[in-house]
Design a protein around this nucleic acid. Structure first.
Lengths: 107, 107
DNA sequence: TTAAAATGCTACATAATTTGTAGCAAAGCG
DNA sequence: CGCTTTGCTACAAATTATGTAGCATTTTAA
């Protein structure tokens, strides 16, 4: 799957509005889960597989490549980690945790 | 596709952690784009199709049903609209717009 | 009142993505 | 040197998404 690049057509926008490109990227299976789990600290591929309870190595690998190409994830000696930008993104995602707990009471 | 319900196994969590259930829902194609576009105000199905430049009616309809079942979207006389909760969710998503514009400079 | 236009979908076949299981090559360890 | 662990890749099956048609119903307009 091609990396959604802002400025080029992506799902949601022929002109590649940045937010739509980001939604395209984050809306792929596991993308947000990976960011969420990586925030607990850099880790190896296998460790990440365990943090994401049910991800297949195929999907994990593909998503990691995309997130890396999108400057959200990087490889360090300790393994995969969020970039500075990845952390900014996480900071915006984090409040969803509380919201989600609230939301879960509705069911 | 089954609605991800917090408390039951979802993609990302066998125990259905709320955040993972929410990620499962929001991570489906077009889910965030729909929420984003609905924030401009309630609208009809066809109007929403236009706001989401390239969504197929099949996907739009499925996503709307899921978002409705998840208390994020509701139907009003004027058409589809965000619920109060949907608006809270939007408020958390909104900052991503600015981040995305920043991010787009990296490419 | 009635013909035309708009709306809200559904059908269905095709294409794209994701999953799950195996397992292999390379690196690290003892 | 064997034994583990790690980071993936292969590949077939299952699940999702897309695109185009088009139809039944409601709304609009003459």
């Amino acid at each position: 799957m091609a990396l959604p690049v802002p400025g080029k057509p992506v799902r949601g926008s022929k002109s590649g509005q940045p937010i739509m490109a980001l939604f395209d990227l984050l809306g792929r299976n596991w993308a947000m889960g990976i960011i969420w789990n990586l925030h607990d600290g850099a880790c190896t591929f296998r460790e990440l597989q365990h943090r994401c309870e049910m991800v297949s190595p195929t999907t994990l690998n593909l998503r990691l490549k995309e997130l890396t190409a999108a400057f959200i994830v990087e490889r360090k000696l300790e393994g995969y980690a969020l970039t500075a930008f990845g952390n900014e993104l996480f900071d915006l995602l984090q409040p969803l945790g509380k919201l989600a707990r609230n939301w879960s009471k509705k069911f």
